[in-house]
């Protein structure tokens, strides 16, 4: 007779890297569809191209390191990196920049530190920051959302722009690209324009930029799905969003004309994508519960500081990378007390 010795907990769930990554991809679907709807085919092309490059790069490096290729490629982590990268970059990014950014993310940031589970930095954000610093012109050429866009490019035109760099006849870059809402807010505030005047432009919706805020909503929905499926815990996203809202509202209360309303920060740029999908990266984020609260709140502080006083309009990538560096230290000082140890005992 065979008596299997089963220890508690007795409920079982298929918890593996592949399972986690699959749910992250599923949760990204609503936000991705929203982005494709508002910003055109370029987003989809970027997502496919980035995934292809990521998987190919992962396979090549694993081969080079004489590691088994299939399990690591099949766990979808490279695809998640690629998708997050593609959702962060402008829709008409030239193909070679996507290849460069994703290649750097997978080969240098992920595999040079030992591959999945060992990378101290979030690969997608490191690849994004590499491009943002190196190619600021290409990386800030965002399209306007669909309702403000008079020159919506078809699939063929989009492919031609991405892969050959030639725009359809009669168009130039200035005509089809537009600054992001965060960028606009920053530039106009620097010109000492009051927020009540800035908000008169048709660029704005209820909280953030028109179109952009809805993308944020769909990412929020995906994030809630991840919370419901317990792929991520609530600590990082909640502490990050609450902290950002509190700081932004505090400054808004101090000066309404130079600091936008708190929800503006939540629904602009990559905040919601970052809070649920990027900051919660299980490898590069904090692991202790208390540490995760500190980690999320610190990211929020950095986002607000860089957005308000820093050199770049959006800051999620920089904030996440900076806190990635601090994560081991935070973990060290927030280790939970082991049961039966500590408190009133001398070893």
């Amino acid at each position: 007779m065979h008596f299997p010795s089963v220890t508690s907990p007795h409920t079982e769930r298929p918890n593996s890297v592949t399972w986690t990554m699959l749910w992250v991809i599923i949760a990204l679907v609503p936000g991705s569809i929203a982005m494709i709807w508002y910003f055109g085919w370029g987003i989809l092309v970027n997502m496919l191209l980035a995934s292809l490059v990521a998987v190919a790069g992962e396979a090549a490096v694993l081969k080079l390191r004489s590691r088994p290729v299939m399990p690591a490629v099949g766990d979808l982590s490279a695809v998640v990196t690629a998708l997050l990268f593609a959702l962060a970059v402008p829709p008409l990014l030239p193909w070679w920049l996507t290849v460069l950014g994703v290649g750097f993310a997978i080969i240098v940031v992920k595999h040079m530190y030992g591959g999945i589970g060992y990378n101290p930095f979030n690969p997608a954000m490191a690849g994004y920051v590499l491009l943002l610093i190196s190619y600021p012109v290409e990386m800030t050429a965002w399209l306007p959302p669909r309702m403000l866009n008079e020159q919506i490019l078809g699939l063929g035109q989009t492919l031609s722009v991405i892969f050959t760099g030639t725009l359809p006849a009669g168009l130039d870059w200035d005509a089809i690209t537009m600054a992001t809402p965060l960028d606009t807010m920053r530039t106009q505030l620097d010109l000492n324009i009051m927020i009540s005047e800035i908000r008169l432009s048709p660029l704005w919706g209820d909280f953030g930029g028109i179109g952009w805020e809805w993308v944020g909503n769909w990412f929020l929905l995906g994030g809630l799905l991840l919370l419901y499926k317990r792929v991520i815990s609530w600590h990082i996203p909640v502490s990050m969003l609450v902290a950002l809202l509190l700081i932004a509202m505090l400054f808004h209360a101090l000066d309404q004309e130079t600091h936008p309303f708190g929800l503006f920060h939540i629904f602009s740029g990559g905040t919601l994508l970052g809070a649920f999908f990027i900051a919660t990266d299980p490898v590069s984020a904090c692991t202790t519960r208390k540490g995760q609260l500190i980690y999320g709140a610190s990211i929020a502080v950095l986002i607000f500081v860089i957005r308000t006083w820093g050199g770049y309009p959006d800051a999620v990538a920089f904030a996440v990378l900076l806190m990635n560096m601090a994560a081991p230290t935070i973990d060290y000082y927030t280790q939970p007390r082991a049961f039966g140890h500590g408190i009133g005992k001398n070893e």
Partner: peptide
């Protein structure tokens, strides 16, 4: 040729030396 500005900035030095 569009240079990768990162290489000239300090991070490029660390990565290159590595």
């Amino acid at each position: 040729f569009k240079g990768m500005l990162m290489a000239i900035l300090p991070p490029g030095a660390f990565i290159g030396l590595g």
